[in-house]
Each structure stands twice: as C-alpha cells, then as structure tokens.
Nucleic acid binder design. Structure first.
Lengths: 221, 221
DNA sequence: CGGCGTCTGTCAGCGATCTGTCAGGTTGGG
DNA sequence: CCCAACCTGACAGATCGCTGACAGACGCCG
C-alpha cells in the first residue's frame, strides 16, 4: 500500500510517515505543493494524506485539480481549524475523509486503513479468502486458523493481492506498490518474495499466469 | 438514491429524513435495531445513515453483521459522544464515514453525497460482444460462459480488437500496439497469432478484410 | 564497536511455455 | 490466370517464471 503524505511541517511529516510505515504502508512524503500536485497526477498511490495548510499552493486547489484530471485515489484531508464549513468545502472538492488537527495517530491510521479498504470495495478490516485470513489492524495473516509468520515485505505483497483479489496483478504494479518508483528493483526481486511466500503458505496459495501476473486463491479451492 | 436512516429519536429521525429528501434522496427511516438489521440485509440501499446509540441493538453490532454478510453499501455512522477511540471502533467495524453529534445538516448532506458518489465510481470493466466477454480486471476472455485460455500476447490482441470493435484495425496498427516501435516484427507474426486465436475461439470470431485488417465479431452474429 | 541473525536483492541455471520465423499452401481480386 | 495477401503447421530460439545460493544491509544486543 503506497501512500503519499503532503505536509509542509517537517516534524509532523516525519511523524505521519513513521506512523503509516509502522502500520504497514509504504510511505512517501513531500512538503511542496507543486511537487505534490505533480506526483499525485503521475504516480499511482493507494492513498494520499493531504494537509490543507500548505504555503506555496492551496491544498484544496491541488485536490480539485487531481479530481479534474480524473485521478480517483482516496484522499484524506488534514486541516488545522475544524469548522464545519471547511469540512464541507474539503468534501465537495473531492476529499474522501477529513481529519481535524490535532488528532491521534491511531485515528489517522484507522481512517487511512478504512479508506484503502473501501477503495478496494471491502467493508471489514478482516478479510478471508478460502482458508486464508488477513487482519489489516494487526498486520497478521492466518491460514486455517494458524498464524503465518511473514516479514514486512511479504505481508505487504499478500495484503496487496488481498485487496485486489478479483484481479490478476501485473508484476510491474507490484513493483510500483512495494517499492517507490525511485527505487529500481529487478522483476526477480518479486519472484524471490513469491517463492518465499509460497514456501511459507503452500504453493497453491499464490497463482501465476504467465505474462499476466500473480493472483491469490484460497488454498481449499 | 435510496437511503435508510436508522435513528431511535423520532425528532432527529424526521429531521434527517427531511434534509436528505430535500437533497434529492429517497429517504426511508427506521427506529428499531432489529428491523434495521433485517432491512439492511435484505433491501438494496445506496446509503445507510446509522446512529450508534440504539436502545434494542447496538449499532456497531448491526454494522458488523452487515459486513460479515457481505453487504457493502456505504454506511455513515452517527454518534453522540465524539471520543476518538469510538470513532476508531466505528471505522474498524466497517463504517465508511463518521459524524459526531451535534452536526450541521449541511455537513451530513455533503458527506452523504460524497459517499454515494464514491460508491458509484465502480465502472464495470467487463465488455460483451456477441457471446464473447472480456474482463479487463481479470484479463480474461470467456466465450459462451466458458473461459478461453489465452497467452498474454493473444489476450492483448483480442483486447485491442475489443476496444476497437467498431472498425477494422490495420495490421500495422496491431504491430505498433503489440510491440514497441523499436522492435521490428514481421507482419506474419500477427498472422500467426491470429491463427492461434482462431483455433482457440473458432474461426468466425476474428474476421479479415483483405488489404485492410482484422476485426472482431461475436460468434453468434 | 563488533558480532550475530534476519531480511532481501542479485545472480545464475533450469524447465516450460511462448512466439517469431520459415516454408509452404490457399484464397481472392483484378 | 497471376500476384499479393492471407493462412497454417512445424520448429527452434527467446522469454518467463522458479529456485537455491550468496552477500550486502540492517537492526539488535552485549
């Protein structure tokens, strides 16, 4: 899950990044409005956390431009003053959720998860597929009730496949979402992770369609 | 836009109904938890506004049960006390948005609209032509309901013809699209692929107009 | 600081599958 | 009738995905 944090205050930005990273997101951040506008337009994020109080370019304008350009990713808006008229403005501009400062990191994380979940079309933080179960809150995967011990990277891959269970996910997409675009990784890196995952969960769990990509299937299918 | 308001206080319930009706929704309401549970499970709403403080049955339990039953409609949760831990609980249970009382009706309406808007954004990636069906999500093609096993290249060709079903596509265009411009492939490469496709799907599916190119047609036309 | 264990990307080799090429055959228009 | 366009089967080289081995990176702890 790739998330972009747009926030000018370096300290808050770092805090947000840390919290989201700890929650299993791949967090990138940016403090400049124009850069944010560009990256939101060109890159593929699962979520954007957007502070409205930016110095260079108004957050609402950025959001509006994204929407005008047809970008539909979930956007969680942060703002310092919590008047309801401002909330309405944010939502009308195309925000998916709204969080007034000050807020608890736990709440931000919960809302971030909810947005990603909702975007994926699922209602609950706990999802099951076959005898597999993914708990987004605890970042745990269980199989037949038994916990599967996964590394952070492995979990992110499984979680991504889980959220896109109805599709075959191209390797390029996995590369984009597991690592930032700046990092150049070999396709083989994904293959290595897949191999390790299959060793842990059984070869049947993750399927591959040559030339297309990977997909998840319950082991009891 | 059909919306269900679940709220035990008759006055608030009426206010909500009025505001939503004025906003263009078709509002139904209900004050009892068990009835709400049933209607949410069996009826088809575009949105549900759910008060957590119900006498008979806890709102969170209702929500959780809906989600467990696979009901994915947007749910906007209302609650009296606005502690952040409660919000987290609501969101974790599968709420799509959260509004603490007291709130302004304008904000509720704005959020309701946003939720419905977002849920409507699920454009279908499935196209049909004759007895052929192309699922862009799964990157799969079915014929008369039966899946056709295609390689990546074959799929790309079919998908391209599908997207340009209304015209005859020149071979040069297919070459350009299937391979990068830099790669020099023989026209015969395309012909080979076409042959393989016809063998898999039946010769009638892909037509050719001598000197012009290829086109797709449903096999039952 | 140094040692230790874990995580993870890279490399190389292997099968299996895919797919472009070639060498014909077939068709259709002029 | 002739030529170009198209079809097709066979085949070999290319590609893709899988895996084991390895080493650099990182964090942890004494």
């Amino acid at each position: 899950m790739r998330v972009l944090v747009v926030e000018d205050d370096p300290i808050i930005r770092a805090d947000l990044g840390d919290a989201l990273t700890a929650a299993g997101f791949l967090a990138e951040s940016c403090g400049d409005g124009n850069e944010a506008l560009f990256r939101g337009d060109t890159e593929d994020y699962d979520l954007i956390v957007l502070d409205l109080g930016l110095p260079s370019l108004d957050g609402l304008s950025i959001l509006r431009q994204w929407r005008d350009n047809g970008r539909g990713m979930p956007v969680l808006v942060l703002t310092a003053r919590g008047t309801w008229s401002e909330r309405v403005a944010g939502i009308e501009a195309g925000a998916d959720d709204y969080l007034p400062k000050p807020f608890h990191m736990e709440e931000l994380v919960a809302r971030a998860r909810a947005l990603v979940r909702r975007a994926a079309g699922h209602g609950s933080a706990i999802q099951t597929l076959g005898d597999l179960r993914l708990d987004a809150n605890q970042m745990r995967v269980t199989q037949r009730g038994k916990p599967v011990s996964l590394t952070a990277l492995e979990y992110r891959l499984v979680a991504y496949l889980f959220h896109h269970r109805d599709r075959t996910v191209p390797v390029t997409e996995l590369l984009e979402h597991l690592y930032g675009d700046d990092e150049s990784r070999d396709v083989n890196a994904i293959e290595a992770v897949i191999t390790r995952l299959r060793r842990k969960m059984g070869a049947e769990v993750i399927g591959n369609r040559r030339g297309f990509g990977y997909y998840l299937r319950g082991t009891d299918e």
